[in-house]
């Protein structure tokens, strides 16, 4: 998505936020972009940093992985926005992490070691978007038959399917 990079402004305005404080203390460069919109904080994370970031956030109190999904920004590059929703039961706060993935090299590290619940979510993203998760224990299709061709939620896949 082409949007101005508001990273520094957002990070400054939300310096008190536990997630931002924890990440800045460990590795400030892992946050590529940040936005605060409709009362929700979104952090764009460098692709290679997603697992360490999740570990850091887990320690910072974000104990629950709500969801992993993806948005296809075809035809712009990087094309896929892998989206993680985290929740902290103790802070009563939500956080969205995004990792942008290129269409030529669609691989992100799986976060199943951090949260086993990512297993199904990542399989769903692989099935419907074709984004690979490195280190996933069982990256098979989950909704569609194993023989299915293509990944239906990609924007270049017709709504009616191929006939």
């Amino acid at each position: 998505m082409d949007a101005p990079n508001e990273r520094d402004a957002v990070l400054q305005a939300h310096a008190q936020n536990h997630a931002i404080a924890a990440l800045l203390a460990v590795k400030p460069a892992c946050i590529v972009n940040a936005r605060f919109d409709c009362g929700e904080l979104t952090l764009w994370i460098a692709r290679d940093d997603i697992r360490p970031v999740c570990r850091t956030l887990q320690k910072a109190g974000y104990n629950f992985l709500v969801d992993v999904t993806c948005v296809d920004w075809y035809p712009s590059e990087p094309r896929f926005q892998v989206t993680y929703h985290l929740l902290s039961h103790s802070l009563k706060q939500r956080l969205r992490l995004c990792v942008m993935v290129d269409s030529l090299d669609t691989e992100v590290a799986s976060i199943t070691p951090e949260w086993p619940s990512a297993n199904f979510y990542e399989r769903e993203v692989w099935d419907l978007f074709g984004v690979r998760f490195g280190g996933h224990p069982n990256l098979r299709r989950i909704m569609l038959p194993d023989e299915w061709e293509g990944h239906p939620l990609r924007k270049d896949y017709p709504v009616e399917g191929y006939r």
Partner: peptide
């Protein structure tokens, strides 16, 4: 924009 909205459905967190 992007939003995530969750509610407590009879079965748990629906978002």
């Amino acid at each position: 924009g992007q939003v995530y909205q969750a509610i407590e459905s009879p079965r748990g967190e629906m978002g």
